[in-house]
Design a protein around this nucleic acid. Sequence first.
DNA 1: CGAACTGTCCTAATGTCATATGACAGTAAT
DNA 2: ATTACTGTCATATGACATTAGGACAGTTCG
Lengths: 138, 138
Amino acid sequence: MHLQLNFKSGKPAYLQLAEQIKYAAATGVLRPGEALPSIRPLAEDLRINRNTVAKAYAELESEGVIETRQGKGCFVTENNSPLRKAVRQEIVSEAIDYAIVQAHHLQIPPEEFIELVKGRLEHFRTETEKPSTSKAGD
Amino acid sequence: MHLQLNFKSGKPAYLQLAEQIKYAAATGVLRPGEALPSIRPLAEDLRINRNTVAKAYAELESEGVIETRQGKGCFVTENNSPLRKAVRQEIVSEAIDYAIVQAHHLQIPPEEFIELVKGRLEHFRTETEKPSTSKAGD
DNA sequence: CGAACTGTCCTAATGTCATATGACAGTAAT
DNA sequence: ATTACTGTCATATGACATTAGGACAGTTCG
């Protein structure tokens, strides 16, 4: 697993870290039960404070992505598909929430929003597998 | 136009104000060219600082909702073309597409995605109805 | 037991955000 | 020009988030 921080992004280091690990867990790069890098070595490796890593891990634990045991380490949650599914939904929910907030700001009612979503979904369905799409906005 | 602030919401006063005015402008309660309340009287009326109102107005100007002229006042923008329905849908569609791509990346099927959207929509609906919160999340 | 590892808690320095105050600048009417 | 209105800017304060360092607690191995 490759972890990298962007200090110029303005996004807190502990959030970047949590996000990357969460993503790795959701996509299977990190398997359930697998141990995460220990707090201190990882912090040293990333040139950040141990507590920053600890905060990222705490965030992940509160989201149910990992499990930490004092004196032993941190591990990806064992629960096979059910919990990983929840994690995936969590990630997508963040993106959905962003879209919903945008819609609300632009005075687009929920029904119209749903229709928009269906429309876009249909649009993607007809284009099936195209390697387009990495326009990340942040 | 009725403006009211909720100091317990945890949301900044200047954002609440900006949002309400933006909504008024979008729904036609405030018509293009119409003058907004002057900064000082409005601030006094709402029992907040002038600069808090000024910040709300500055935010609205940066979004193109209003236009301010020093010494004269603030006015709703004459041509809010950016609020045209098609344009609004375009903007939101981008955010939706991003979420869809994420879902596809995480192998969440369309039906599940739709359900997620509905769930989040419901979540927001019930949240805005109950402004009493213990912890303000953003 | 002690040493070396694991995570955890407490507290402080720093930066940023929201807000408040005072001084300043443009406009209009007298 | 004066006066009274308009918005604007620089700055200070208080709250909170982020990060950092020291001391503490649980685990494992020798």
